[in-house]
């Protein structure tokens, strides 16, 4: 097999751009699964929900999907608070999160998907933005704007989440709850409240990431499932609960996928994340930047 330089360069750039977007998809999982130990497999369902909300408002008022998602993110935050409340009362408090909690999130994932199918059908929906058609060229390398804009906003969001977690009181409380909830309780902080707000933050990031998704590619309700493997692979690969690790893992996965689709065909790309997940679990379960 030949590896022409231009093709390799393009694959690397496309992989990095894609990776930035993947980081936005998985930063929420890194918070909920990595730090709070809430295995929210319904995370992709909220991403798709975010895509559809961006789609509706864009079609209705013509506002850019990413702007829409930032405006409606408080709604996702509220949804996250509600969801964690149910999860806490029904499962975590009873110590049943491992089996029934998982089944609960699976049910939520499934209901969201079927409800979207019933409302919007299984057609692919897409959004046109001012920058959809523009592509910058730098020598042989292409920079399609529909990837660059989500990349920039994604990386900003992920770095913002990291700075928020390390530089604010509340953020440090989240990190503390990840390390030792009992100690937090002894300090007079209610870990459940902290977890609820942090979980809500993770759902809010999912909603925003949904807007990136619909800018990058057409969306239909069932594609959420394809991202379950991906977001958990990135979270585990990067190291549980490490935001920088998530960013790094996302870039690794983005480049791996981009190389696979360039050299073996795009139909093989979904297998990459699973391969990396299994490799990470088998050889280095603590991840790249894990504690």
């Amino acid at each position: 097999m030949e590896f022409p330089t231009a093709l390799v360069l393009n694959a690397i750039i496309a992989g990095l751009l894609l990776g930035g977007f993947y980081a936005a998809l998985s930063v929420g999982i890194s918070i909920s699964f990595g730090m709070l130990d809430v295995v929210n497999i319904a995370h992709p369902a909220f991403i798709i929900l975010g895509s559809y909300i961006a789609y509706i408002v864009n079609g209705w008022m013509g506002v850019d999907p990413i702007v829409v998602s930032l405006v409606v993110s408080p709604l996702f935050f509220a949804l996250g608070i509600l969801l964690y409340r149910i999860y806490y009362v029904c499962f975590e408090r009873r110590g049943q999160e491992s089996l029934r909690g998982l089944a609960f999130f699976f049910g939520i994932l499934f209901i969201t998907e079927v409800a979207l199918v019933l409302i919007f059908g299984v057609d692919y929906r897409m959004v046109r933005t001012a920058y959809s058609e523009t592509t910058w060229r730098l020598g042989p390398v292409d920079f399609p704007m529909r990837l660059v804009v989500p990349f920039l906003v994604s990386v900003t969001m992920v770095v913002g989440v990291q700075l928020f977690l390390t530089h604010t009181f509340f953020g440090r409380a989240v990190l503390a709850v990840a390390q030792d909830p009992l100690a937090l309780r002894l300090m007079g902080v209610n870990p459940t409240r902290v977890k609820g707000l942090a979980f809500a933050l993770s759902i809010a990031t999912a909603g925003v990431a949904g807007a990136f998704l619909i800018v990058i590619q057409p969306v239909q309700p069932a594609i959420g499932r394809e991202y379950i493997g991906l977001v958990f692979a990135i979270c585990v690969l990067g190291g549980m609960g490490s935001i920088w690790g998530t960013l790094l893992g996302a870039f690794v996965l983005g480049i791996a996928e981009s190389f696979t689709s360039t050299f073996f065909g795009p139909s093989w790309a979904p297998a990459v994340s699973f391969g990396l997940l299994l490799a990470a679990l088998g050889f280095k379960p603590s991840g790249l930047l894990g504690r």
Partner: peptide, 22 residues
């Protein structure tokens, strides 16, 4: 995956369906 926490088995089976499908 069964040597690790149960969650990883669950996630692996989820991803397994996608990979076998591919």
């Amino acid at each position: 995956t069964l040597r690790m926490r149960g969650v990883f088995f669950a996630i692996a089976t989820l991803a397994l369906a996608v990979v076998l499908y591919t």
